[in-house]
């Protein structure tokens, strides 16, 4: 027990502040502030592997390591689609996973955001469209945001998730404004 505690103490807090995504886009901290304001920084993600090679999953799992610390930003991965706000899909939607993906999508309560991660999710990647692969996720369910890469780095994925939520929220408030006016 004491060796565990001493290693915990020696390691210290490892979470990093993520660098700005690009010179024009606002630094990540301020995007996180936007999320804080809008969604109350309580985001639940349901991930579905729709035929990925596992590369994107490895980078998604890295989001839970102490450096990227997704939970510290108030985002967590949930087990049940009924608990989720965001559906994160990896892979080029194999024919065998089409049904499962659609059902998961249907089980997520509104409002929801769908993000396709990786080149495969974006456009089918190197697998493309075939008898066994439906191509991109957008061909099966509506997608709000795509995070390209093979596999995309965790910092990019995190930025993409935050972006997607901000813009979806922006669209929702535009709709609300239009309804009210």
């Amino acid at each position: 027990m004491f060796d565990v505690i001493s290693l915990m103490l020696r390691t210290g807090i490892l979470t990093e502040r993520l660098p700005a995504r690009s010179p024009e886009s606002p630094p990540l901290e301020s995007v996180q502030e936007d999320i804080r304001r809008i969604l109350g920084r309580a985001l639940c993600i349901r991930h579905v592997d729709a035929g990925s090679c596992n590369g994107c999953e490895l980078e998604l799992q890295a989001l839970n390591n102490p450096y990227y610390n997704l939970e510290g930003a108030g985002i967590k991965f949930v087990a049940s689609p009924r608990h989720a706000d965001v559906l994160l899909v990896t892979g080029p939607v194999s024919a065998n996973m089409e049904e499962a993906l659609k059902r998961t999508y249907g089980a997520i309560p509104d409002p929801k955001v769908v993000i396709a991660v990786g080149d495969c999710g974006a456009c089918g990647g190197i697998f493309g469209k075939s008898y066994a692969s439906r191509g991109s996720v957008a061909d099966v369910i509506p997608v709000h945001r795509v995070i390209p890469g093979c596999p995309p780095e965790p910092a990019k994925i995190l930025a993409g998730i935050l972006d997607a939520v901000v813009s979806a929220q922006g669209q929702a408030s535009k709709r609300d404004k239009a309804k009210r006016s």
Binding site: G51, S52, P92, S94, F127, S130, Y131
Partner: peptide
Amino acid sequence: YTHKGVAK
């Protein structure tokens, strides 16, 4: 479930 037709 993840059969993507790699051989083809």
